[in-house]
């Protein structure tokens, strides 16, 4: 697959726009998911994921072929989402905690969706809960935990993606793990 992507990138560099569609459809789930986990909002996530691909396309000539394309793409997406979080207006989001409650967000106020029977619900709820707990981490820890355990990058690659020293990645991943350990210990 990597070889195919490398070929496609070459074609895009030559100016063949249609080759980029294959690149997008190969990475779309990963990048969309990454943005969603960073931002916690589906609409914003779609917007940012699209923007990430467009920036990748526009700046394709600054991509060095000898490096991994996925690392480069994640770097663009991560920077975009972090920028977005910084610029965020104090707006009302459904998943923002309701004042005066503990861990209750607007989702819990909505009528729950159709229930699935038995275990499936349990495992889906657990997955959702974990996702929620990860999203509660500060962005600088969250991004690293996600890249390491959900997107399975090596620490060195994470250091490249985030453009921070390897030592810092390690310190943050330690803290992120500890923070989540405390949050998830009673699961």
């Amino acid at each position: 697959m990597d070889q195919i992507i490398i070929e496609k990138i070459k074609q895009v560099k030559k100016g063949d726009q249609s080759a980029f569609a294959d690149v997008v459809s190969f990475y779309q789930d990963k990048i969309y998911q990454h943005c969603l986990r960073m931002l916690g909002n589906a609409h914003e996530a779609e917007d940012m994921a699209q923007e990430a691909f467009i920036r990748a396309y526009v700046n394709i000539h600054s991509f060095d072929d000898r490096r991994k394309f996925s690392t480069w793409l994640y770097r663009i997406a991560t920077n975009l989402t972090i920028d977005r979080i910084r610029k965020r207006k104090p707006d009302y989001y459904l998943d923002a905690e309701i004042r005066g409650t503990e861990g209750l967000d607007m989702y819990s106020q909505l009528a729950s969706e159709e229930r699935l029977p038995g275990e499936e619900v349990e495992s889906l709820e657990l997955q959702r809960y974990i996702h929620h707990e990860i999203s509660q981490l500060p962005p600088k820890y969250r991004s690293i935990i996600m890249l390491r355990y959900l997107e399975e990058f090596s620490l060195q690659e994470i250091s490249d993606i985030l453009d921070i020293p390897l030592g810092t990645v390690k310190t943050r991943i330690h803290r992120g793990r500890e923070a989540l350990r405390k949050r998830l210990r009673h699961v």
Binding site: I31, Q33, Q127, I134, I145, Y149, L150
Partner: peptide, 9 residues
């Protein structure tokens, strides 16, 4: 963490 909910575009 690895079992967190997955999303598709």
């Amino acid at each position: 963490i690895k079992s967190a909910e997955h999303f598709t575009a």
